[in-house]
Simulated scan of single mutants.
Amino acid sequence: MNFSIRNSTSCIIMLLFCFAIMGCESNFKEVQKMGFAEFSPSGDADGINLKYTDSGRITANLVSPKMLDYATVKFPFTEFPQGIHLTLYDKNGKETYVDAKYAVSHKNTNLIDLQNNVRISNQNGEVLETEQLYYDQKNEWFFTEKKFKFTSPKGVSYGEGIDFSKDFKKVNSQKISGEVQSSE
């Protein structure tokens, strides 16, 4: 067997190159892990029953089986992955009920995004059903561009796109159809 220095040097260089590549790949994976921030909630609660008050008067009652709070992210929000039941109270004590299978409350905008089988009803027998609805907490205003069904003692109507006050006293709807009894 006859080995030359040239062949030995080539083998050593190839081995060093292979080790360098394997080492760099391992370091690269470690660097990736360092830059990866896990997206996890800063708060987690089961079986919540929150009461919101204003000047000693209860204005809302939120009930949910699960709440995840993401207060430490750039755009903080609270998620309700198993849905909510919300009761809103006006100044006269009249109640409006909101049910959804999923909800997200965005803290910076005071908007609540309600999704999946959203149903709003009140003590007057009025019911609105849709797949997605937003609630502006500051202005106490609901809105959607999705299809909806509105049932009242006067009849049933369907449409796509609606916005209204929490007590249904002010309603603006688009692309509406259905039969509604006139008060005349």
Rank of each mutant, 00 (worst) to 15 (best):
Q123F: 05
Y158M: 12
Q174I: 12
F168C: 02
D167M: 10
P81H: 09
C24P: 00
P81K: 12
V104T: 06
H106A: 10
K169Y: 06
L128T: 00
S40A: 08
S10L: 15
A37Y: 09
F168S: 05
G159V: 09
V118Y: 01
C18K: 04
N110S: 14
G43M: 06
D90K: 01
C11H: 12
K66L: 07
F148C: 04
C24E: 09
F80G: 04
S4N: 10
M34F: 06
G83L: 09
E95S: 14
M22P: 00
T78W: 02
T78I: 05
F80H: 05
L50F: 15
S4A: 07
V127P: 10
G43T: 03
P153W: 02
L86M: 15
F168H: 00
W141E: 00
T78Y: 06
S55L: 01
F19W: 13
I176F: 11
Y89F: 04
F150K: 00
L62Y: 04
P41L: 12
K169M: 11
E126Y: 05
L50N: 11
S177N: 11
D69L: 07
G23W: 13
N2F: 10
A71I: 10
A20F: 12
Q174N: 13
P153C: 02
K33I: 05
G93R: 01
S173C: 08
K147N: 12
Y52N: 06
I176Y: 07
G23T: 09
R119N: 13
I112G: 00
G23M: 11
N61G: 01
I12E: 03
P41Q: 12
F164K: 05
I48D: 13
V73I: 15
T151S: 15
N2G: 08
F80C: 00
K154T: 05
Q82Y: 01
K175Q: 11
D99Q: 05
R119H: 10
D167A: 08
T87Y: 01
V156I: 15
A60S: 15
T78C: 02
S40Q: 10
I5D: 14
R6L: 11
I58W: 00
L50G: 02
N117C: 02
R6A: 13
I12N: 08
F39R: 12
I84Y: 07
S165C: 12
V98K: 10
I120H: 06
E160I: 04
L133Q: 09
G161L: 11
F28V: 06
S64Y: 01
I120C: 02
M67N: 02
V118K: 05
I12H: 07
G83V: 07
F148Y: 13
Q137D: 06
V118A: 04
F3T: 08
S42T: 11
V73G: 12
N7R: 08
P76N: 00
S10W: 13
E129I: 12
